[in-house]
Write a protein that binds this DNA or RNA. Sequence first.
DNA 1: AGGTGGACCCGAACGC
DNA 2: TGCGTTCGGGTCCACC
Length: 289
Amino acid sequence: MPELPEVETVRRRLAPVLEGRTFVEVEIADARLTRPLDPVEVARELEGERVALVDRRGKYLIVRFESGRALLVHLRMTGSLLHGERGQLPDDPHRHAVVRLDDGSDVAYRDVRRFGTWLLLEPADVDTYVNARVGREPLAAAYRARHLAEQLESRRAPIKAAILDQRTVAGVGNIYADEALWRAQIHPLTPASTLGPDEVKALHRAIRQALQAGIRRQGSTLRDYRLPDGGTGSAQHEFKVYGRGGEPCDRCGTPIDKIRVAGRGTWYCPSCQLYSASRPSRSRRQSSV
DNA sequence: AGGTGGACCCGAACGC
DNA sequence: TGCGTTCGGGTCCACC
């Protein structure tokens, strides 16, 4: 599942490949990718564009062109981008688009479940579109615990649901949400607004650490995620809780438990991540229930 | 109006 | 063994 660490890894690998290159020919074979726009028309619009920068916001990969336009690629669950010499990429029934570059190489898009999207935006629309959907970048130097606190103070939803909301903080998905909550020792069902200042600080640090650990291992390959050269990430070997139901907690040895939160499979340590009743009581914000 | 759950997909895992 | 069923996850959208 490409989350921030996976998309950032793809970005870093793709940047040297794409920057300065021109899209010579573009083929988009799946209408879902550009819906509701016609994929053939989008492909035609892309031809001739020259890449200025490969950027990222949250889970969006942003290919910025010299024209000021930008192609927003969202991999959703099973999307991946592969780079290779023209015609050298093996046949693939799940390949839905190919970009031919002016240096003779190809970038191919594959997506088993076809949830991914390609959106070409005009210069004036790029920031507006992204900022409406995505909150602050958690790995930016300027990202502080108080930014997270501001987002959480009015949220009654479970903390896990709150941090899965991309406007709360950019790029956290189901895996790194569980990993961050384990690091911060916070129960995933804790109402977001009841977290105390120390817990918010711990969570702020935990989100950054969990994401950075993912990037260091070039993301996690559970099934479909690949680097642009076809390689796999290895962050899954270092998960503390995600997918580890029944296994002993690294910190205390208690078997990891699995529950459902916000409709998502959620793994946590029932000893290290105690629910509110066992957390030290603290003054709550006033809220008329 | 914030929160929740279904829809969209498809392969893998599961169950009988 | 084989086949039908369930699961899962990011985002959008309808509904409460």
